[in-house]
Write a protein that binds this DNA or RNA. Sequence first.
RNA 1: GCCCGAGUGGCGGAAUUGGUAUACGCGUUCGACUUAAAAUCGAAUGAGGAAACUCAUAUGGGUUCAAGUCCCAUCUCGGGCACCA
Length: 787
Amino acid sequence: MNRYEPLKIEQKWQEKWEKESPFRALDGAKAPKKFLAEMFPYPSGAGLHVGHVRNFTIVDILARFYAQKGFNVLRPFGYDTFGLPAENYAIKTGVSPQSATKINVENFRKQLKRLGYYIDWDREINTSNPEYYRWTQWCFLQLYKKGLAYQKESYQWWCPVDQTVLANEQVENGHCWRCGAEVEKKKMKQWFFKITEYADELLEEIDSLDWPDKIKTMQKNWIGKSTGAEIEFELAPDSQETSDSSTKTAITVFTTRPDTIFGATFLVLAPEHPLVPLLATENTRPAVEKYCADSLKKSEIERQENKEKTGVFTGSYAINPATGEKIPIWVADYILSGYGTGAIMAVPAGDERDREFAEKFNLEIREIEKTPEKPFGKEKTTYRMRDWLISRQRYWGCPIPIAYDKSRNPHPIPEDQLPVLIPEVSDYKPDNTGRSALAKATDWLKVKIPVVDEKTGETHLEEMTRETDTLDGYACSSWYLWRYASPNCSEFAWDPEKIAYWEPLDIYCGADHAVAHLLYIRFWAKFFADEGKLPFREPVKTLLYNGYINAPDGKKMSKSKGNVIDPLDVINSGYGADTLRTYEMFIGPYDLDAAWNPRSVGGVHRFLSRVYALAFDKQTPENALKNSGKTDKAPEEIPQNAPLRAKTIKRVTEDIERYSFNTAVSALMEFVNDLYKSGASAEDIIILAKLLKPFAPHLASEILEAYHSDDSWPVCDESLLESDLVQIIVQVNGKLRGKLSLPAEFLENEEEVKKLALEDKNVQKFVKTTPKKTIFVKKAKLLNFVV
RNA sequence: GCCCGAGUGGCGGAAUUGGUAUACGCGUUCGACUUAAAAUCGAAUGAGGAAACUCAUAUGGGUUCAAGUCCCAUCUCGGGCACCA
């Protein structure tokens, strides 16, 4: 008895692939190219999880499929290594992020190899490698040169105890998630990328993308374009008790319905609006100031959770330009400072929120009786999308290549001084001024930057202080797909010739980052296309967004619940990588979430064991080859299998092409079941192994080697699909009443089929009189009598 | 609240263009092999019915010779957005 021993087979092939590197992509080869990638992972200390395996296996199947079809395939791999977990680990243990990352990457690589992935290991990318982040810094400088990287004061969450900035999600009920201290909002100068510059193009090109509708809709909502008008409301002359002539005398509001202006009975400003302090009068000032201070303290989440309207009257009035009437100006936190102008004209008769506010505070609600013939104000388009805040007060990130002179003016680090290396420190905690641990590297902070003297035109070196913020990790991942084309290029971020050959990416697969990452790479592609550095404006042709794998009970897997399934455990338990890969494809449609089912894993393993038995146990490869005429001229002994093979080739090929991996596996299972009944020739086994190879590459390689076959993707002989006999379905009133097995030429002869159908005894039971109507569908091989 | 997506056996799911509903797998049952068990192999498996047949794709209508598929309404679940003026 010759049993399937996956671990043995897999070790053999993995060693061979390690030695021979057969998955290298050939730059500029003549064969048509396919460039495929998954969203590169953050290599956590926990190693691969089954969700990674699903994602990577989808890409692997496509890579192998296209390689077997003769394409020049590029399937690289990379690691998104900057990030908080490594930094927090360093703060806790003192182990540097550099060395923790190195260990984690090595572990990931080892695990990936245990899965037998088709990866061009010469193109491995690591974002925390200075040779990589050098070019991330270069990208920043290109954006900076064009004014698309800029500094702006903005409010940030600040924990006074931990002395650090917090993200919105790290603030719980107004308290720091770590120490519980009440957080403050602190105005800080931060770096931004001006993604809003491309808002229109990012929106318009969404429709042309071969991406899931879900993602396209999310991006559209995120960009949130709306068109309307900005209208100026003059302040009523006597409205300000603090009469200051230099004060601005108009408030600009944004509205999508300028036609409703006759119903505007008051104005509302966001608490952060700069005019609020000026509008407050002697009497109202204490209340206004308290309201604004309270609002600032509330988190965005709290402000949105509490839908009960709150607000306060400023004491000032404005003039409605349509009616000439004096209307009161209020402050309320249901107006968002970051959207539009941070001020609205309230039309309680037309807007639900304004009505609610007016009812609560007893303000006038006036029906919109007429609409102005000429629209007020000037046309204006606004977006929900804000500029991308990229400053992070973190150690473990790509340093922003900027230095400040004595007056705190920013200067770019000259490109020939890149990379700005991350300095080594011994303590990774942020310092007490809200700066990252980079600030502790006192020697590193000082840098001499060439400055051109405006008067003399001469260049001199000026001592400056480096920026201590690092870049958002999303910046590092915004261009890595282009680095894959020339991962070791030392002259450019990417080699233009190689970019022209490989890019854009044909298929990108992932399960996350619907708006952030997938919007940022589009933004950078457009920017660098404008710079003449990329020959395309959309970086990803087809996007596959795969579902999650949940625990057997349907809940999310998590360490704390203790329900995590470790893919290496599945492999090592004896199932092997081929079973794991094939199971995760068989689990269901790739784009839906699925629950892990241990019994089903066993079912897939049984299937692969049957494949193995077919090739090695029921007969030896030598005998099979002899019998099917591979080694002598004897005719193939199982003629009915030729159409079966053709059918299977067609199904598996088409299923992979439409990403229906679960049904492709089903088709292979059916083929194997049929071969168990009919017996299998060498030809049958070779075709089976070729079709199986993308899913179970080790086992398939083992079979193909023993059967002296290459792995070229088989072509379906369509003529074999047309059998001599066809089955014709006979319905009466749409219900199945009989089946006729007839020579194929009968499909051309409707009358004859009708005659034969009416001779069927069962059909006769339901057709007592002459049918009113007869419908014959040749394509469906179906006859329907209407009685 | 708004916008998407989905609802098919005991379970995961299939049905690609309106044309044989329930492929494939799991589970269950029976049989073979075995002293026995496991493994393996074979058979059965939507419900009702002895059968003929009838009824079944969330619910109720509709269009059609024919509907899981198209249309209308309702319910349930999942996802996204959520005071965006």
